Computed example of a mutant assay.
Amino acid sequence: MKRLLTPSWIARHVGAVALVVAFSALGWWQISRAVAGNALSWAYAVEWPVFAGFVIFVWIREVRHTLRGDSPDTDSAPGPLDTAEPARPLAATGVAGPVGAPADARGPGGAAGIRRPVRAVRRTTTADEDPELDEYNRYLAWRNANPDARISDYPG
């Protein structure tokens, strides 16, 4: 519970209470206008309490997330770029190898519960395959090299 009593959390609590009170007051104000004959205010009389409910929903969600704390799927867990550990070969990390690879090539533990890295294959086209695509790529390269130029200045 001490995590919810830090200065930033106290500001969040005060902000949430202030928003709920303000949205509730605006809803009550719209109800009084609607009763006085403004038909459009009935929609706003429903809308403001919905906003207050959303603030309560987000506040509860953030409190639960903070109280959950050190679970491995929190945002405070180091990402792949934050680790200080040097890169290891795939066999040493236990990451599964290609489909159909022998079990010893998959590393210790096999593929159970470990994600494989995504390998993207880029296919390049030649002028024989798609000349319109090549012309468009030249145009985009020219636009990238000349960001201040007008489209009518393109030499192609």
Rank of each mutant, 00 (worst) to 15 (best):
R3G: 13
T6C: 10
T6A: 11
A11T: 05
V14P: 01
G15T: 05
A16P: 14
A18E: 13
L19R: 05
F23Q: 14
S24V: 11
S24I: 07
A25F: 02
A25H: 06
W28G: 10
W29V: 06
S32Q: 13
V35N: 10
A39V: 11
E47F: 06
P49T: 10
F51V: 08
A52T: 04
G53K: 02
R61H: 07
R64T: 01
H65C: 00
T66L: 14
G69S: 13
P72A: 01
S76V: 03
P78K: 07
E85H: 03
A87L: 09
P89F: 02
A91E: 08
A92N: 12
T93R: 14
G94C: 10
P98R: 11
D104T: 11
A105G: 06
G110L: 01
A111G: 15
G113L: 09
I114P: 05
R119K: 07
V121A: 14
V121R: 07
R122E: 08
T125Y: 14
A127F: 13
D128L: 07
D128M: 01
E129N: 04
D134T: 04
E135F: 05
Y136P: 02
L140K: 14
A141P: 00
R150S: 13
I151T: 12
I151D: 12
P155I: 06
